[in-house]
């Protein structure tokens, strides 16, 4: 008996967590998937009616805006964060005396809640009292910076705040990557008289491909889930100009009482996340086992 126990203790210790993940992750995904195929409104119904919720979803102009915004926001947020993060990492890698302090300054926004970030930038970009008013008070009377209240520009205001928050993190990833490049190769290249920018573009940056991939995955994941920032910065507005799939889902679930729409939009979000993350995780896990 004790021997049996001894042999099975590890499994029994792991079991509760595993069961919890099975139920609360996979079971719940199935539940949401099921409900997305029903006519659920205020209360969930379990009678399957086919893809009507998805038809409604894809016919909805608000969802259309949300998906467009996701691609605009996601593309710019990821692109700018990657470029800025790499750029800062290369600058910081030049034997800077104050490196520690600068790194701390670049990275601290990552410790903040997106609600705090949103609150701060909402105030800074407030047309009446923020940057616009300040620059005008310096004598540039016609200066306008009202992105946050302009339906066509508001999504770019969200990009600014998001890049501010996450680019320091990308910088930290790249800096760690730069430090792990084999110094002998670089020394050899220097001895051969290869210019610095060529050493970066031909040797160092290509060797950091895996870091680009990880940074991309993390940023893409942040972009798809981003909800707090939009809520705090624009509340999805003006109108629903800055709605993202995450805010659409939340509105349907908790203020519109349209559970069918909430479930189908959540499933589409998961589809987007999984097409990005699954191949990545799969290759990571495989690489580990080899």
């Amino acid at each position: 008996m004790t021997e049996w126990l001894e042999r099975h203790v590890p499994k029994m210790v792991l079991a509760p967590s595993f069961v919890a993940v099975l139920i609360f992750v996979y079971g719940f995904i199935i539940w949401t998937g099921w409900v997305s195929l029903t006519r659920s409104k205020l209360m969930p119904k379990y009678e399957i009616k086919g893809f009507i919720q998805y038809d409604r979803l894809f016919a909805s102009p608000r969802w259309d805006t949300a998906m467009d915004n996701l691609f605009i926001f996601g593309g710019l947020f990821i692109g700018i964060s990657l470029i800025l993060g790499l750029f800062l990492a290369i600058l910081l890698d030049q034997k800077i005396r104050a490196e520690g302090a600068l790194r701390t300054i670049y990275l601290y926004p990552m410790a903040l809640s997106m609600i705090v970030t949103g609150t701060a930038w909402k105030w800074i970009m407030n047309p009446g009292l923020g940057i616009e008013a300040t620059v005008r008070s310096w004598g540039f009377e016609s200066f306008t910076f009202n992105w946050i209240t302009d339906p066509n520009m508001a999504i770019y205001a969200v990009v600014i705040a998001a890049v501010w928050q996450a680019s320091g993190f990308v910088m930290a990833l790249f800096l760690a990557g730069l430090r792990s490049v084999d110094e002998e190769i670089i020394k050899a290249a220097q001895v051969d008289g290869i210019p610095t920018w060529r050493i970066y573009s031909a040797i160092i940056i290509p060797s950091m491909a895996p870091i680009f991939l990880s940074a991309f995955i993390v940023l893409a994941h942040l972009a798809i889930k981003s909800f707090d920032l939009v809520i705090a910065l624009t509340g999805g507005g003006p109108g629903y100009a800055t709605d993202l799939p995450a805010t659409y889902m939340y509105a349907m679930a908790f203020s519109r009482g349209d559970i069918g729409q909430a479930a189908s939009s959540a499933m589409v979000m998961m589809g987007v996340v999984f097409t990005i993350v699954v191949p990545y995780l799969y290759s990571e896990l495989r690489a580990k086992h080899d």
Binding site: V25, I29, T32, P44, L281
Partner: peptide, 24 residues
Amino acid sequence: ANLIFSLMLFGCFIPFQVVLLPMA
């Protein structure tokens, strides 16, 4: 054990919107 670990790992990456309704 590896399968369990993979399943738990995938769970980290789901958008939480997909569990909000059943969790509520």
